[in-house]
Design a protein around this nucleic acid. Structure first.
Lengths: 337, 337
DNA sequence: TTGTAAGCGTTATCAG
DNA sequence: CTGATAACGCTTACAA
């Protein structure tokens, strides 16, 4: 088999503890011996066996990441960040794809625990009773992304969904839009999704516009469902002048439906979105959207989990990163009236 | 600490070997004892420590995946497949993001080896001397995706790039296009990229059209670079009537440039692509493209690596999956002439 | 500063 | 069928 610490010790005429000391420089070792050992290590091409090491230190240097779907720009960028930062701390990430199914998520949560990951970053569309059950019965460090679980003492990193949604809606109103449809996630378990709805409603009310619930549809993060939702919108007697979709993918689904139905965006109907993934810039018209610092969200999440692993105290549970409204080409002023 | 095999043994009044036997059912154990042990396991909530187990079995149940970038639909879908199938075999995947940099890739290749993953699935834009060096000095099972390394005895799963490219070009020609630009990857180290070029050239020659190298540009998998490349195309005296980009993202970059410059796609210029990621359907016009069975490519790759891990013989080194040309809205016949 | 030896939690060998 | 006991490769008191 591969060369072990024993081989090195023998070759260098020292004890294995000494070798251990030089590779971890955990205790003083005389310079002469240190040199000798390092030379042997190099010569033999020795690399410590992390498994054996883990067995005694009880550390795996692994953090698990559970996501509902890898195949989209948002997750990709978050994952990029997590992976990159994790590496600099000597951690590897092991990836679990739940397909947004609660059963799968619970399964992975348990699996990862038994696999001895040191912490878990958890992205989910909604938080259920089963999740809460798992979390309360476990002391595994967990941080959530874009989902609030502070009531269970779990940290989350996110953006202020109420404010962002409020700002966007207000922006729409400033541009003369009065009849504004909202295509949102739709789960009642999604605190931030609810905040988006509240922000939307607040801006409307503040402008003296009554909230018309028939204009609030559900797209569940899906381009296709947003497409369908938009079809429904187009069958209304009085069309909205703007559609606010809470995801780039949903906005695109919506625009596609509009375009396919012969409408021009933004000339006939404006569509704005939330997140600002690469999609928002790739698509034509480019999306006016709420920019989330996606990479940073991932970066903060991994840093938090490492803090928790190290049992450092977190000064708060919700880490809110700044968002910005970025104007591009999918929104225009209402001119006629 | 957690409950160990010892605790179970003591509680059940048997030896740890017996417990080990029932959890692995590696050797016959009397029904009575088996029942008793299982009851204790359940009662104590015992789960075997995989680290300790790995230390003796030399198996980590981990396969590493190195990708140049996670944040795109292609990788996402490949990863989805890998992750999903891996799980069914009891493997987890650990993810490494190389940003397409050779140094990073080599770094991860080594890191993963020392981390004792049992196999590596490797996606890279190009294969360099450094890679070859690593591979020749290692007996780590490796499989490549969409890159040919058969000369080093490394298996690859892919699509027939020559044929696909040939078919698409021929298709374009059948639609009346004679002046066809190609925006391709561009690395000379990329065998399949070269095959694409050859397929393109072959179809052209067969149709008696001279290959004009000034029409062959490089986009390096990037939307932005394809955008730039298209700018160059638009500055030519004689514009092509069609652009063949070898990636959906590049095709979109190209179309964006065209649209931003006032051209209509496909009315003024047709643009076709390669891969058929979700992007191809999300964009308007929807992309006429060569469909690759992306999920299946990932699935085959992970199955191959598991086969290699189990030292089963592979009957070949290149696993070519079927592609299809899918017609959508970004290509139209040339009418005038 | 260095070495000895006792684990870490399993599996595997070998008696019984 | 069951039980000791020796690994696995490493870290870490405890001695020297």
């Amino acid at each position: 088999m591969a060369v072990t610490i024993k081989d090195v010790a023998k070759e260098a005429n020292v004890s294995i503890s000494t070798v251990s000391r030089v590779i971890n420089d955990s205790k003083p070792v005389s310079d002469e011996i240190k040199q000798r050992v390092m030379e042997v290590i190099r010569r033999l091409g020795y690399t410590p066996n992390p498994i054996a090491r883990n067995l005694v230190t009880k550390k795996t240097q692994l953090v698990g990441v559970i996501v509902p779907d890898i195949a989209n720009f948002y997750m990709g960028e978050v994952l990029n960040a997590i992976e990159e930062i994790a590496k600099t701390y000597g951690y590897d990430i092991i990836l679990c794809n739940s397909y947004g199914e609660i059963k799968q998520e619970i399964h992975y949560l348990k699996l990862l625990s038994s696999k001895q990951v040191e912490g878990i970053i958890f992205l989910t569309h909604e938080l259920s009773e089963e999740h809460r059950e798992f979390f309360s019965g476990s002391d595994m460090p967990v941080v959530m992304i874009n989902r609030d679980a502070s009531d269970m003492g779990i940290a989350a990193v996110t953006v202020n969904h109420f404010d962002a949604s409020y700002e966007m809606t207000q922006h729409l109103i400033n541009y003369g839009h009065k009849r504004i449809a909202l295509i949102r996630n739709g789960s009642t378990k999604d605190v931030f999704g609810i905040e988006q709805l509240e922000g939307y409603a607040a801006a409307l009310e503040e402008a003296g516009i009554e909230v018309d619930l028939s204009l609030v549809l559900e797209g569940h993060f899906s381009t296709e469902l947003a497409y369908e939702a938009t079809k429904n919108i187009l069958s209304m007697e009085k069309l909205p002048t703007a559609i606010f979709a809470t995801t780039d993918a949903m906005a695109i689904g919506s625009i596609n439906c509009l375009v396919d139905s012969g409408y021009k965006v933004p000339d006939d109907i404006s569509v704005v979105s939330f997140y600002d993934t690469e999609l928002a810039r790739m698509y034509r018209p480019q999306l006016t959207t709420i920019h989330q610092p996606i990479y940073d969200i991932g970066a903060v999440a991994i840093r938090l989990i490492i803090k928790k692993i190290r049992k450092e105290e977190l000064d708060k549970l919700i880490f809110t990163l700044p968002h910005t409204l970025v104007e591009r080409d999918s929104l225009r002023r209402v001119v006629e009236e």
